[in-house]
């Protein structure tokens, strides 16, 4: 076997080895390549294989982002969704941290109310989406409320766990050095709960995004939901994909911000 084509083999090895080794050392670059390849397949399929009434190639979507933003009402709808996410996130953080602390600080409260919180968190909230809209109307209020109801539970649960799961030796040692109750709360319990709070914020952000966007899509007479229904009915895949992509980008950016914050404030845990 070694005799057959020794030259051909070494030639291939010589040209391919450095590139292959470079990719082996940079998995991120390979990931980029995979994404590019998927986009290319999408581009090819959309141009030559699939019905252009239902799907557009990514290049066309990208080039037509301008016309998407020129569509009257779209920038406003996107801005409103962003506003709802921001307000919903802030409310979920405040309510979640408040209740989480209250439940976490007392063993009895934790025992009593944690099962109820977990029960409520486990309920399929999508089923009550229509109630939110009936109660709060089709405007921003119902979307914010639905976002808060999705986002506050993970924050609550994380904060309560962060307060509860503190290593007892840290409390004991603070006590041995003469720390008062307030000092233990401020210097031991709060800082210990900070990383859990940020973990909760990350999960909460996912929840708020889900809640707000679910409600936005559900209400088809205003906001994002109006445009997704409009583009779907008019068979405008280009603008629909563009709008969805914009929202996905917003979601990715917001997720990334809270993830960075979590890494930053959780450094000491490593």
């Amino acid at each position: 076997m070694a005799v057959t084509h020794p030259h051909a083999r070494t030639a291939i090895v010589r040209t391919e080895a450095p590139l292959k080794r470079w990719f082996l050392r940079h998995p991120g670059a390979m990931r980029g390549l995979v994404i590019a390849l998927l986009l290319l397949i999408w581009e090819f399929a959309a141009r030559f294989l699939l019905d252009s009434d239902f799907i557009s190639p990514p290049s066309v979507v990208l080039m037509s982002l301008g016309t998407l933003f020129a569509t009257p009402g779209v920038p406003k709808a996107l801005g409103l969704a962003l506003y709802e996410i921001a307000i919903g996130f802030a409310l979920a953080a405040v309510i979640g941290a408040g209740i989480g602390l209250a439940v976490g600080l007392s063993r009895f409260a934790h025992r009593s109310f944690m099962p109820i919180i977990l029960l409520l968190y486990g309920l399929p909230q999508v089923t009550i989406l229509p109630i939110f809209v009936l109660l709060f109307g089709i405007g921003a209020a119902s979307k914010i409320a639905f976002g808060v109801s999705h986002g506050m539970f993970p924050i609550m649960i994380s904060v309560a766990a962060g307060v509860q799961k503190i290593n007892p030796v840290l409390r004991t040692s603070a006590r041995s050095m003469g720390a008062s109750r307030a000092q233990i709360l401020y210097h031991v319990i709060f800082p210990h709960a900070v990383p859990s709070f940020f973990t909760g914020l990350r999960l909460g952000m996912t929840g708020v995004l889900l809640g707000v966007l679910l409600a936005e899509l559900y209400v088809s007479t205003a906001g994002i939901g109006f445009f997704t229904s409009l583009f779907t009915q008019n068979l405008e895949p280009t603008r629909l994909i563009g709008l969805v992509a914009m929202l996905a980008v917003i979601a990715v950016v917001l997720n990334e911000i809270v993830r960075r914050a979590e890494l930053h404030y959780g450094r000491w845990r490593a």
């Binding site: 990931r31 799907i55 679910l214 899509l217 997704t228 895949p237 996905a248 993830r259």
Partner: peptide, 19 residues
């Protein structure tokens, strides 16, 4: 790659899928 996509609210794809 998968965890990044998982963090997006995939419910957003529903209009595309409906289309």
């Amino acid at each position: 790659l998968f965890s990044a996509i998982y963090a997006i609210p995939i419910i957003l794809f529903l209009p595309l899928y409906v289309m």
